[in-house]
Design a protein around this nucleic acid. Sequence first.
RNA 1: GAGGGUGUAGCUCAGCUGGUUAGAGCGCCAGUUUGUGGCACUGGAGGCCGUGGGUUCGGAUCCCAUCACUCUCCCCA
Length: 463
Amino acid sequence: MLSQKLSIPKGTRDFDPETVTKRNYIIQSIKTIFEKYGFQPIETPSMENLSVLTGKYGEEGEQLIFKILNSGDFVKEISLSDFELGYKKITQSISEKALRYDLTVPFARYVVMHKNQIIFPFRRYQIQPVWRADRPQKGRYREFYQCDADVIGTESLICEAEIIWMINEAMEQLGIKNHSIKINNRKILSSIVERIGMPGKETDFCVAIDKLEKTGIDSVISELKSKGFTDLAIASLFPILEIKGTPAEKLVALKKQLEKSETGSKGILEIETVLQYVEAGSATISNLEFDLTLARGLHYYTGCIFEIKANDISIGSIGGGGRYDNLTGVFGEPGLSGVGISFGIDRIFDVMQELNLFPQQFKNFATLLICCMDKSSENFCLKLLYHLRKSGINSEMYPDIVKIKKQLEYADRKKIPYALIVGTDEIQSGLLTLKNMQTGVQLRLCESELVKKINDELSHQQI
RNA sequence: GAGGGUGUAGCUCAGCUGGUUAGAGCGCCAGUUUGUGGCACUGGAGGCCGUGGGUUCGGAUCCCAUCACUCUCCCCA
């Protein structure tokens, strides 16, 4: 045992080469789709001024923000009386920066700060880690990546439709076949709350109803009761929640229930329009569900909301988003409407890993290993190495003069498909020994034949 | 914030109701093969049994505390 027990902070992870390669595959796939839809990348700092983040995520979310201790003597500003005012007051004086909690709020800040140079409607994507001081568990980390794409500066519901296409394309590309894309509308939810006579209780309602699928009707009822919903209100909720069928059927039934509500009708029209747009541009998306119980926690959503679920794995949602009418308002720039989607790539990774959806050929990086037999052959090998790399063959050379057994074992373990054995025999004859590690077959070739041979075999494999 | 579970070799774990040198599989190293990997065989290294205390003639095993990890709920990606 080593002298010290090393560890990393709870909820964080080291990634080995294979894992990073797989993650990059996911990121690259999503990035390609974002760009295909005309989204442009931005990046923002890992840390924001604390004041940018506070007041945006509700009380629960606020607790989960990782704050950064001020540098230097941060104690000198604190007086004894500050202590009596509690930790919140102290926090203000010892921490003025924090790690970003999501990508949407920093994006809103970015939009306001750069509004004069941005071309609206602004389509941006952003793929960066975020941090939450949450308690880790399955599928939940304290450091994880989000892949966000948002359009800001238009109210057009075409953007919602495009987001649905993108989700669909991403799931298809990654091979997550059994998934659901859920859509709902916050306006519909508010009008339901209104209709059952509980205005102002929207947040409580959303939080409770969101769990319907997971915990069942009884626990939702008891949660609503505990939040002060009357029996009458709960009873009048049933006809609405019992609406079933295709999205179109649900909309018809819901219309009857909410016809008197202006907000409700507007929400329904929005959903209808989005569905119509989705179909106008492509065939029906069969995984798309209109789910009245979808609520989503973030309180800044005001219109359509989305969620992506992988149905084979119990891991929570693998992505979500929605429309927010006034996100930049808190930064002094009202009237900008936006809509966005966020993919949780760490969860997507877990899902793909469990379902074995990653392509197999990820394991090898180098295509060829030069096994150099003796000190006097080194210079010859180095020259060869240079030429091979220049010819586009990913190559490495075993850096020490050790037994060939050891060098081949190295190639084997790293899944390098070719070994090139070079010693005095090869140098004298000019014929190099190429070994195919999979078949064990060895050939004697000159250098130009070698390059051709490898390129031929590789291109065959890839087809 | 509330509640479970688990800490023994690098990894996955066994070790029953306390009993002498703490085990297995996999992995690692070496050899069988002085220029040939995977397979097989042979040998080897590697453990303050998470930490501290208690009960006992005797503790990996029982009791208490503590720390770490993990899972569920809350909330979220």
